[in-house]
Amino acid sequence: MSDFSIELGKKLGAYALVLGLAHAILGAAVFLGGVEVGTMSFGDLPRVAVLFVIAAVYIMGVGSLGKGRNEGIAFLMAGLLISVAVGGLYLLETGAQYMMYILGETDEFRILESINPATLLLVLALPLLPMMKRVTHGMVW
């Protein structure tokens, strides 16, 4: 028995799967491939681990979303919240790096190199918000 339209659920599930895989691939590229992406490098294990956690949250909800169950929305919502926390942190770090440059503590500030790709993945996830709001219309805290 579904809580909302299965067709919508499948779309959300596909989106969640793409987001989850994107996070996992990025984490694997940095950790296994030794690739340096933005502010992430091989030695920065916590940043890599965080990517895998977000990936797991998104991917674990794909099955329930495909069946139109609210439980799937729960994983999507939680994934988005954690992405906001992590992406927000990285944005603030970029701002802090810029302030350090203004204060003369660093010689240069390159905005493209200082942006963490997880922040871009968060931006990619934002279109989910209106879809989720539609599905959970009338729900209370």
Binding site: D3, G61, N70, A74, F75, M77, A78, M139
Partner: peptide
């Protein structure tokens, strides 16, 4: 089925 945002987030 979950009825509130709290129920939903607690599932995760």
């Amino acid at each position: 089925s979950v009825r509130t945002y709290t129920d939903m987030l607690d599932r995760v």
